[in-house]
Amino acid sequence: MQAFASLIDRIADHLAQLCGWAYFTIGLMLGFEVIARYFFNAPTIWAEELSRLLFIFATLLAAPALLRHNGHIRVTALTVLMGPGAQRLMRLLALGFVVAFCCVMVWYGKDAPLNSFLRGRSSGSMLDIPAWWSQSAVPLAFALLGLQAVIEFIRCALGAPLPPDAHAPE
């Protein structure tokens, strides 16, 4: 169990690294696009569409690591006034809600990519990539996030110390 939990932790952190560099890659691709258009009169057909695809995955797959490091933006106005016991209870409630939300998102999010895959639907744009590529990001990311939330829930219930709040800038 312990080993499984730390494996999931490691996956979340490595994914986050990949996501960070995915944003970096988007920057390179779009910079290239501008240069190609202005200096070579040759706009690409892939830069915009691949950027959007990478962007969707990078954003969603960063969610588990953010949860693990308490990086999601939360309202702490009430919880900071509470004692440690009440704070733990609030955290359990919050994590429970996240688990439920993830289950619903995976359940209903799987239909669109499945349907697109079976019907061979493509994006219909100039690059014309399969539609399920981007659609599968939803069930995948929420499955991972849900798993992470279950692990954090169990940790919290077993009395692990509450993680400090990492304030994410707007």
């Binding site: 999601h72 939360r74 702490t76 009430l78 919880t79 409630l93 809600f97 939300f101 619903v104």
Partner: peptide, 18 residues
């Protein structure tokens, strides 16, 4: 209520929406 319990804003909005 969801926000004050400390549910991350993203999931409070999404969860309530669904």
């Amino acid at each position: 209520v969801l926000l004050l319990v400390g549910v991350p804003v993203a999931f409070a909005l999404g969860g309530l929406g669904i």
